[in-house]
Simulated assay, not measured.
Amino acid sequence: MDLISFQEALKIGLNLPQMGLEVQKVPLQEAHGRILAKDFYAKDPLPKATNAAMDGFGFRLEDLGKSMPIGATIYAGNPLAVLAPGTCLKIMTGALVPDGVDVVVPLEQMQEYDDLNATAPLGFKKGANIRYEGENFQAGDLLLKKGTPLKIGDIALLASQGCATLSVYQKLKVGVFSSGDEVVGLGSAAQKHQVYDTNGVVLVAILQHLGFEATHLGHLPDHLKEQTKRLQESLTHDVLISSAGVSVGDKDHFKEALLQMGAKIHYHGVNVKPGKPILCASVADKLIFGMPGNPLSCVATFLALVRPVLCKQAGNNTPEPLIKARLNSPLNVKGQRMHLVLGHLENGVFTPYKDNTYGAGAIDALSRSNGLAYFSGVTEVLVSLLP
């Protein structure tokens, strides 16, 4: 197995040809987490019209400090009123501000007022407590770029523009296998020589969290012909991911099965710990990843090397942010390679779980950690938060 560097593996994955993505229309309330398929431009300015930011009184600057008759009271939803000469206006939050009103003085800051007259103190600057039309953005401004994963704030912004439906990319269809004759499904009674299907369940959960349409396709037996058949039948999915069977053992048939299908192997073996045997391949425009069988290795390498590739393939132009952090103490590791270290990130400081002395089978490390650090022998690390 010829190893390539972590950086090279990631570059290969990110430079794979973009698979064709279908576009669909969805109601705005169902668009959270989806990937925007077209640039979205503002239909209206924000604010749409100049309006009051507070409940109060509208005055001309030169009338501050004077007792002024109240010419009218205006509310949000009222048509635009007129400020008559020699008067002020009582105005509520969101109401349209008439021409001539220079400031809105909040009720609690008024010098005095009753039903007929109002006196505002001096000291307010022009524009105080007024939201001017278009001060946030103008009609025609680019609000959201194609490829944006939509957050709650984006949904609110689009709703404010009257957007009822939205063009988004179809979700990637990802099929997940677990391989190995020792693997048994959850809910059954595993014997001493068996293990529960942790990888399949965890991968599906992560994939669904990332917004993909993920399906557990079951178990791949340690049999070359059967693996080839099952994988070939599953190419209706955009992406296939299988765990275990990617090393060089007698029953590790995954790579050979792919070759019998005519797959192109992009890499097999990365200089990373854990997760060295990870494999990336493609058949036509379908992507296939072979993950290590150990759950820690499987999750770590998926997050580091597979997640960014799938997000890009899904049309997402916003990479998962990596957080710069300091190590709480020096981390001694062996070998010149990328180390993926589980631990806890708090206030910019990363603390490896059990000082990075946990073993490959310590699944508790996943439960007790909130971050995955990328470490290659420096005092600072980059950390991605665990889903």
Results as ranks from 00 to 15, higher is better:
V201K: 14
M68N: 11
V103F: 05
V105C: 10
S376P: 05
T73K: 03
R60L: 10
D285V: 06
Q7W: 13
G249M: 09
L80D: 05
P121D: 07
G13H: 14
L217M: 04
F6H: 09
Y353G: 02
S242H: 07
P308H: 09
G147Q: 02
G71Y: 01
S369T: 13
M110N: 01
G123R: 02
N78C: 06
D238Y: 02
L172N: 10
L217I: 07
M291F: 14
V306E: 03
K276E: 11
S367C: 10
A214M: 05
Q232P: 08
G180S: 08
H237V: 09
L210F: 15
A365I: 05
L310C: 05
T301K: 07
V299A: 14
L240G: 09
G140S: 01
H209Q: 15
N370P: 03
H268C: 13
P308K: 07
T318P: 03
N136C: 08
T50S: 00
G65S: 11
P221K: 03
I12F: 13
D252C: 12
H32V: 12
V195H: 08
L217K: 04
F57Y: 14
L14S: 02
R131F: 01
N78Q: 07
A190L: 07
L310F: 08
V248Y: 06
L279T: 12
N15M: 13
T379P: 04
L143Q: 06
L16A: 01
G33P: 05
L203E: 05
P308S: 11
G315S: 05
P79W: 00
P352S: 13
A159Y: 00
Q24W: 00
P295C: 02
L231D: 01
L296R: 15
L16P: 03
L327T: 04
V195T: 05
V176T: 04
G200C: 08
F177R: 08
N136R: 06
M291S: 05
T228I: 12
M92Q: 08
N271R: 14
L36F: 02
A9G: 15
G335C: 11
G371S: 08
R60S: 09
L305Y: 00
N356G: 14
L107W: 07
Q109H: 13
L166C: 01
I278R: 02
N271Y: 09
A244Y: 12
D364K: 15
K286P: 05
K286V: 06
L385S: 08
Q336Y: 13
T236K: 14
Q170H: 10
F137T: 11
P274T: 07
L3P: 10
G180E: 07
K255S: 15
G86Q: 14
V183G: 07
I91F: 01
Q138D: 06
Q24G: 04
V23R: 13
D181V: 09
P277K: 02
G348K: 04
V201M: 14
G218H: 02
Q170E: 15
T198H: 14
Q109C: 09
S167G: 03
Q336I: 11
H216A: 11
T357V: 12
G77W: 00
N347G: 06
K146I: 08
L83V: 01
A205D: 15
A53I: 00
K354F: 01
G153Q: 13
G359L: 05
E30G: 01
H193S: 13
L345H: 02
K312Y: 01
I74L: 00
A76Q: 09
F177A: 04
